[in-house]
């Protein structure tokens, strides 16, 4: 039972992993990520890659919505921008994949800055609605800017190549996507040790006070959009490489709602929340499938029931978590941890 950990310097206080125990757990996590591909089948690896991409995207959205308080329903459209950038570069330029990903992030950041301009004028729900409008406008561009996006016919993307190995299978793709995910998540966690991160939190909690304290609202709000778009761009680019083909209908408003639900379920305003939420929301359909299979002796058309049930469960998760556990899975996790820290005392 850990009673307390005394810090002797500001740097120590700020550290991401304060105690040796935390370092050990982190090392174990990394080790299990490394070992995972050797004990799982192709389908689990496919899920793992999908989860990683979603974690990156959810972390980005969390920075914007959870930490800076700017609700965005345009996240999927930003991923689309990243995906189309990668797709265009892949088909028209001979640049290596990591440059493509960085370019995707760059283009998406620029688009995000423009789409974030309404945040300088409106906030809260109005901003959310403005982001819905932005996502529809982007969708229109995807469909009609045929010379770049090939419109509704969609674009195919060749799998990336590292040192001669083609990453066209989840078991090889895993080795690229997971390190990127770990790095992006650590970067996000670190962001909130810096001035910028604290400014974001201040804006979320009370933006008028933040501006009184000298935080330039326009600059930091746009920065938040930019950073979130960066993450969305990387996630979108990875998605394009992973799926191998994208079309305008790949990034609907429903996907933005999915990510927003993921951070609500996971816990807005915590890095862990983004991770847990993405994992939970990506794996829930799988669990549902098992459930429907189990219940299949009792229902006469189990196949016909899965899709609507998924929609209902999705909505019920959002409503349920908001009603009963607004701080999400991260809070549940913290409660469990507290229980074990303080055991045998009661929490």
């Amino acid at each position: 039972m850990r009673i307390g950990s005394a810090k002797e310097s500001y740097i120590a206080d700020e550290a991401l992993f304060a105690t040796r125990t935390q370092w050990v757990w982190f090392a174990l996590l990394l080790a299990s990520l490394v070992l995972f591909p050797f004990v799982s089948n192709l389908y689990w690896l496919y899920l793992a890659c999908l989860v990683s991409i979603n974690v990156i995207s959810a972390t980005g959205l969390n920075i914007l919505t959870g930490f800076t308080g700017q609700v965005s329903l345009g996240h999927a459209a930003f991923m689309g921008v990243g995906a189309y950038t990668v797709a265009w570069l892949d088909n028209n330029a001979q640049t290596p994949f990591y440059l493509n990903l960085l370019a995707a992030a760059g283009v998406t950041t620029a688009v995000g800055l423009v789409a974030g301009l309404p945040s300088l004028r409106v906030k809260g729900l109005y901003l959310a609605i403005a982001t819905i409008a932005a996502s529809f406008i982007l969708q229109f561009v995807f469909i009609n800017w045929e010379s770049v996006t090939r419109g509704t016919r969609g674009i195919n993307i060749e799998p990336p190549e590292i040192m001669g190995i083609v990453l066209d299978n989840p078991d090889t793709f895993y080795w690229m996507v997971v390190p990127i995910m770990v790095v992006m998540v650590l970067l996000a966690a670190n962001l909130f040790r810096t001035r910028v991160g604290r400014a974001f939190i201040a804006i979320r909690d009370r933006d008028i006070s933040a501006s009184v304290l000298g935080i330039s609202l326009p600059a930091y709000k746009l920065m938040s959009f930019a950073i979130a778009s960066f993450y969305a761009g990387i996630a979108g680019g990875l998605y394009a490489y992973f799926m191998g083909s994208i079309n305008p209908e790949s990034f609907p408003l429903l996907m933005s709602i999915f990510f927003l639900a993921a951070i609500i379920v996971g816990g807005m305003g915590t890095i862990l929340g983004g991770i847990l939420g993405a994992i939970f929301m990506t794996l829930t359909p799988e669990v549902l499938r098992y459930g429907v299979d189990l219940a299949s002796p009792f229902i006469d058309e189990p196949g016909a029931v899965l899709s609507p049930v998924r929609t209902i469960v999705f909505g019920a998760l959002i409503v349920g978590f908001l009603l009963f556990e607004p701080h999400g899975l991260a809070e549940i996790w913290r409660r469990i941890r507290r229980f074990f820290h303080l055991w045998p005392f009661r929490t």
């Binding site: 195919n156 799998p159 079309n247």
Partner: peptide, 27 residues
Amino acid sequence: FRRITSRENVSFYFGDSTAFHQTINRE
């Protein structure tokens, strides 16, 4: 598709939408 092909040795496949046909082509 991935689930079924990881369990079975599939020779033919029947797909449901154009988007799926495009995406799965590489696989």
